[in-house]
Simulated scan of single mutants.
Amino acid sequence: MTVFKPAGLLVCAALFAGVAKAETEVKLGYALADTSHYGAGARAWQEAVEAATGGAYAFRSFPSSGLGGEREVIEGLQLGTVEATIVSSGTLANFVPETGVFDIPFLFRDFDHARSVLDGPIGQEILAKFEDAGLVALAWGEQGFRHITNNRTAIAAPADLKGLKIRTMENPVHITAFQTLGAAPTPMAWPEVIGALEQGTIDGQENPLSVITSAHLSEVQTHLTLSGHVYSPAVLLVSKPFWDGLSPEDQDAFRKGAVAGAKAMRAFVDDVEQSGVDTLKAEGMQIGTLTPEQRAAFREALAPAYEGYARQYGEDLIRRISDSQ
């Protein structure tokens, strides 16, 4: 016997199926404002996935540490309570120690060198290690080369850092470097930094121009030293429980979307590298640039730290990175 269903019910059922499909929420948390390079990456990632899947996934972004600090968000990914994040490499060393090799000071010559290493075999080998930590790393994003800001003095030599309380990420490579240079590194989650600078709890911090400009650090810092001491990548991550529940086609959409997000971040950084210094100067910051000779003096002062890095990460890996074209 044929059973006829009213046309209205069929339409309602179809609409309901479409709504249900579109309600697969993807919570995407990150530390900076939506106007930052993180925000640019998040939007490109979202747009690419939603286009490729016909709107089957609805991204819900939580910028400005709306889901907590980076460590908390990563732990949320491990638990499956957060689906996705864009996160700095500095925090990741606590979860995937091998990522710390990229934080070695003065390891990368320039942007082309850094991007070539991350997009090549070395970078992809390290991305694959994230699964052991219950995470799925889809692409290397970017923050740029890190520079030092502070409220006490211009920095032209390692001696100028002596005793300066510099906020660092919770990153052993960064902490060791600043300790070796005579500073007082102070690990601190990003949401606490602006208040600590305002109150004088710390003297300064170090970040790429993309962060210094988007966080308006010129409002709380006087001196900017263009040191370029560390190249700072970022990673676009998803939760492994979430990833394992995706079809192969949707996994491909998320991976390609993450690559689009990474490209958007790099484009943002390229723009800031052109315009950021002029913006900060106009906002009143006193800006200095390390000369090649001054950078060499910093590298010489870091010799004890380099010995430790070689023991930790292996001379061969560090040499592979240094020698890459």
Score class of each variant (00 low, 15 high):
residue 40 A to D: 10
residue 143 Q to M: 06
residue 44 A to P: 11
residue 42 A to R: 06
residue 44 A to M: 08
residue 39 G to A: 11
residue 133 A to K: 06
residue 12 C to Y: 13
residue 196 A to W: 01
residue 259 V to W: 05
residue 276 G to E: 06
residue 254 F to N: 09
residue 261 G to P: 06
residue 122 I to G: 10
residue 261 G to E: 06
residue 281 K to R: 14
residue 322 S to P: 00
residue 137 A to Y: 12
residue 49 V to M: 04
residue 256 K to R: 15
residue 139 A to T: 05
residue 153 T to N: 13
residue 274 Q to F: 01
residue 289 T to Y: 02
residue 39 G to N: 09
residue 124 Q to V: 02
residue 325 Q to I: 08
residue 30 Y to P: 13
residue 213 T to I: 10
residue 66 G to A: 07
residue 143 Q to P: 00
residue 101 V to G: 09
residue 64 S to G: 08
residue 224 L to A: 01
residue 315 E to H: 08
residue 279 T to A: 13
residue 256 K to C: 02
residue 28 L to V: 10
residue 63 P to T: 09
residue 82 V to P: 11
residue 237 L to C: 02
residue 247 S to W: 02
residue 17 A to C: 12
residue 53 T to S: 03
residue 165 K to Q: 12
residue 123 G to I: 00
residue 226 L to N: 10
residue 282 A to E: 15
residue 29 G to D: 11
residue 63 P to C: 05
residue 138 L to I: 10
residue 179 Q to G: 13
residue 246 L to Y: 09
residue 194 I to Y: 14
residue 267 A to F: 02
residue 37 H to L: 13
residue 141 G to M: 04
residue 113 H to I: 04
residue 188 M to L: 15
residue 235 V to I: 15
residue 13 A to R: 12
residue 164 L to F: 07
residue 231 Y to K: 00
residue 258 A to D: 08
residue 140 W to N: 08
residue 75 E to W: 00
residue 16 F to S: 14
residue 128 A to S: 09
residue 280 L to F: 01
residue 199 Q to L: 15
residue 199 Q to W: 10
residue 299 R to D: 10
residue 79 L to I: 11
residue 116 S to Q: 10
residue 220 V to H: 13
residue 87 V to P: 06
residue 281 K to I: 02
residue 108 F to C: 12
residue 5 K to F: 12
residue 141 G to L: 02
residue 66 G to H: 05
residue 237 L to I: 02
residue 114 A to D: 06
residue 188 M to A: 14
residue 283 E to A: 13
residue 27 K to P: 01
residue 263 K to N: 09
residue 204 G to W: 03
residue 15 L to F: 08
residue 17 A to K: 09
residue 229 H to C: 06
residue 92 L to S: 10
residue 102 F to V: 06
residue 193 V to M: 09
residue 234 A to S: 15
residue 193 V to D: 02
residue 147 H to T: 07
residue 170 E to G: 09
residue 284 G to T: 01
residue 2 T to P: 14
residue 147 H to D: 14
residue 308 G to Q: 13
residue 243 W to N: 02
residue 92 L to F: 01
residue 98 E to P: 07
residue 225 T to N: 04
residue 303 A to Y: 00
residue 314 G to W: 02
residue 70 E to L: 04
residue 219 E to L: 09
residue 311 R to E: 15
residue 202 I to C: 12
residue 44 A to R: 03
residue 99 T to M: 13
residue 224 L to T: 00
residue 78 Q to R: 15
residue 102 F to M: 04
residue 167 R to D: 12
residue 25 E to D: 13
residue 46 Q to M: 12
residue 102 F to P: 05
residue 189 A to K: 00
residue 277 V to R: 11
